[in-house]
């Protein structure tokens, strides 16, 4: 049986108290919500916080506020997000993305905030300690070399969150609270393209809520590439959100790629669509544009060239679904999602 390392455990009763502990303990403390990302990492000694600050007893983190737009507490489990009618009705991409994270059990445990802060992943990193010792560790943890790109100066671990691409496409913000105060930033600004320092969130900040703007007139979708219909992290995620005029002319479009870089990528493909219709040609052009942004490497599942090759097809599935094509059979075949 794999065992967790020893740690101090505390369960603050408020966000302020949690923020206070984080400020006092510094980088030795880590937040734990669902635990589905952190605990495996701790068992493999990728992360060994001396103190776990549990958010379980902090009130308010599961709040849902439906006003102009929608605010979701970061402590909602992914299945709770999936089951919110307000999400399914107005923010389909988030509903679809949250519904495809990991497995049914893990979606009952993992939280929205946890999925946004999900540690970047790499086949050289997500291994037991003795395995990593056999390769003399890697740049992300205890080592010097990034083994997937040995001349790289930065860690190339992969952003593997499903909900972030969806929330970026949906134009969402996150609220970050620390002992020093709080701030709200765009989800897109939560990330930076460095596998080791992939979040702009400071270690003492707590991600408490996600706020979605009013998206009347928009349609959105999320398509996920993974080997199996369960468990697997994305090896490509395509989130798209499009606002069209009544005649079908695209007014706004955002296409975001996940799992092909150390951060989700808001591509320029959306801009190509503006002012035109979602014709097959426009969709193909957007697919091509998005492909150029994808930078898969040999550190996740399946062949990296193939993963780049199929970006265009997945962008196509997403945009055709938004256009109104019936993509349910394709969705079921590829993603085992109804």
């Amino acid at each position: 049986m794999m065992r967790l390392p020893w740690f101090k455990y505390c369960a603050p009763k408020s966000v302020a108290e949690a923020a206070h502990i984080l400020a006092a303990e510094g980088r030795d403390a880590m937040l734990i919500a669902g635990g589905t990302d952190l605990l495996p990492n701790m068992k493999r000694r990728q992360q060994t916080p001396a103190t776990l600050v549990s958010l379980r007893e902090v009130p308010g983190l599961k709040d849902v506020v439906n006003g102009r737009g929608l605010t979701l507490g970061a402590g909602l489990t992914l299945n709770q997000v999936v089951n919110l009618p307000a999400v399914k009705d107005a923010y389909l991409a988030l509903h679809q993305a949250a519904g495809q994270v990991a497995s049914p059990h893990l979606r009952n445990m993992g939280t929205l905030g946890g999925n946004l802060c999900l540690d970047t992943r790499c086949l050289y990193y997500n291994q037991n300690e003795d395995w990593r010792r056999a390769i003399d560790f890697c740049m992300k943890c205890e080592g010097e070399t990034c083994w997937v790109a040995t001349s790289s100066k930065r860690c190339m671990a992969v952003s593997s969150t499903d909900t972030a691409p969806a929330l970026i496409a949906l134009g969402a913000n996150v609220r970050l609270v620390s002992a020093a105060g709080e701030r709200e930033i765009a989800v897109n600004d939560l990330y930076q393209n460095d596998g080791a320092e992939y979040l702009t969130r400071q270690p003492d900040e707590i991600l408490t809520a996600v706020s979605l703007p009013d998206l009347a007139g928009w349609k959105s979708t999320y398509w996920k590439l993974r080997r199996r219909g369960s468990f697997d992290f994305p090896i490509l995620g395509v989130a798209a959100a499009v606002r069209t005029a009544p005649d079908g002319t695209v007014l706004d479009a955002r296409i975001v790629l996940g799992a092909v870089s150390s951060r989700p990528i808001l591509t320029e493909a959306g801009g190509l669509l503006q002012g035109g219709k979602l014709s097959d040609e426009a969709i193909a052009a957007a697919g091509k544009k998005a492909t150029s942004a994808a930078k898969p490497l040999d550190n996740t599942d399946l062949d990296l060239y193939w993963r780049k090759d199929v970006v265009s097809a997945f962008v196509g599935y997403a945009l055709r679904e938004i256009r109104g094509d019936d993509m349910s059979a394709t969705r079921l075949r590829i993603m085992r999602q109804l």
């Binding site: 101090k8 455990y9 505390c10 502990i21 303990e25 103190t51």
Partner: peptide, 10 residues
């Protein structure tokens, strides 16, 4: 167990 402040490892 429910503690609001950090104690030593138990």
């Amino acid at each position: 167990m429910s503690v609001g402040t950090v104690k030593e490892v138990q």
